[in-house]
């Protein structure tokens, strides 16, 4: 089970992995994630379910090679099986008819917003997707995203496609120019989600962020994923991962990201 059906590098350091998991495919909803362990020795790594095919019984996720465990994942080949593969986990997005929905994404978030765009569009929303990367060649799924969005807007740090800068810079321009949104969803690195939340606050646009805290079990048992939202402790794996970006205590989130740096460097060096 959990056999790799297809796997390819879709941009430098970014991989797309399709896995046989019929049960998960039959249950997955936009915004949910899974936890994969590539081999016996690796970590439980949470990954957003970016696409699924109920007929084929497969789920697809996009991963960035970051540390020791995603490095093992990179080395897995078509036909290999995951040591463990659990999902779907977390709450799905609240998909409703809001009007205009802005989806802001960077790195793995581009894959993560694909099913969201599809679902929001199907509900009759105008969906504007923002996709960002350092450079043009690091973007992926442009066609897929364009297919399910009303419009896709690009930002690249080097200016090779779309706005020169970040997705939040582009969003800022658009907001200033008077574009109206009824809901914003941001997925990607914590800093991107933080910036988007800061931006939309004065406009009072409900902003949902998809938190990617450190996780272990994903069932609410360990508390590793805790964060503070609206002055209350929440567990990202079961209460989230989607929270109101205006309520999240970002100081804690941004400081926690560095927690394991030292050990992870050791772990990679010894691999």
């Amino acid at each position: 089970m959990a056999k790799i059906i297809n796997k390819k590098q879709i941009a430098p350091n970014i991989h797309q992995c399709e896995v046989e998991a019929p049960l998960i495919a039959s249950k997955a909803l936009p915004g949910q994630f899974l936890i994969a362990i590539p081999n016996e020795f690796s970590e439980r790594t949470p990954m957003t379910i970016s696409d699924w095919d109920t007929k084929k019984g497969t789920v697809t996720f996009i991963f960035l090679e970051i540390g020791a465990s995603t490095e093992v994942m990179t080395k897995l080949k078509k036909g290999d099986e995951f040591y463990s593969f659990t999902g779907p986990l977390g709450k799905a997005y609240d998909v409703d008819k809001y009007g205009t929905v802005g989806l802001i994404a960077g790195c793995y978030g581009i894959g993560a917003i694909y099913p969201a765009a599809k679902a929001f569009k199907a509900k009759g929303n105008k969906v504007i997707s923002y996709s960002e990367a350092r450079s043009n060649f690091l973007l992926y799924w442009n066609d897929k995203l364009e297919e399910v969005s009303s419009e896709v807007r690009y930002a690249t740090v080097d200016g090779s496609l779309g706005k020169k800068g970040h997705a939040y810079d582009l969003l800022e321009d658009d907001l200033k120019a008077g574009m109206k949104f009824d809901r914003i969803i941001a997925v990607g690195c914590s800093y991107l989600m933080y910036r988007v939340s800061q931006l939309t606050r004065p406009y009072n646009i409900k902003t949902i962020v998809s938190m990617n805290t450190v996780m272990i079990d994903g069932t609410g048992m360990c508390g590793a994923c805790r964060l503070v939202v609206g002055n209350k402790t929440k567990f990202a794996c079961v209460d989230g991962p989607h929270f109101d970006g205006h309520q999240v205590d970002w100081d804690i989130v941004l400081s926690r990201r560095k927690a394991y740096l030292e050990e992870e460097i050791i772990s990679k060096e010894r691999w």
Binding site: F41, A68, S69, A259, E263, S267, W271
Partner: peptide, 19 residues
């Protein structure tokens, strides 16, 4: 859980870190 289930006491053979 880090120490036992994920065997962090055998780090870095097992990759889950523990402080």
């Amino acid at each position: 859980t880090r120490a036992n289930l994920m065997k962090a006491y055998l780090f870095p053979k097992y990759k889950t870190p523990i402080v």
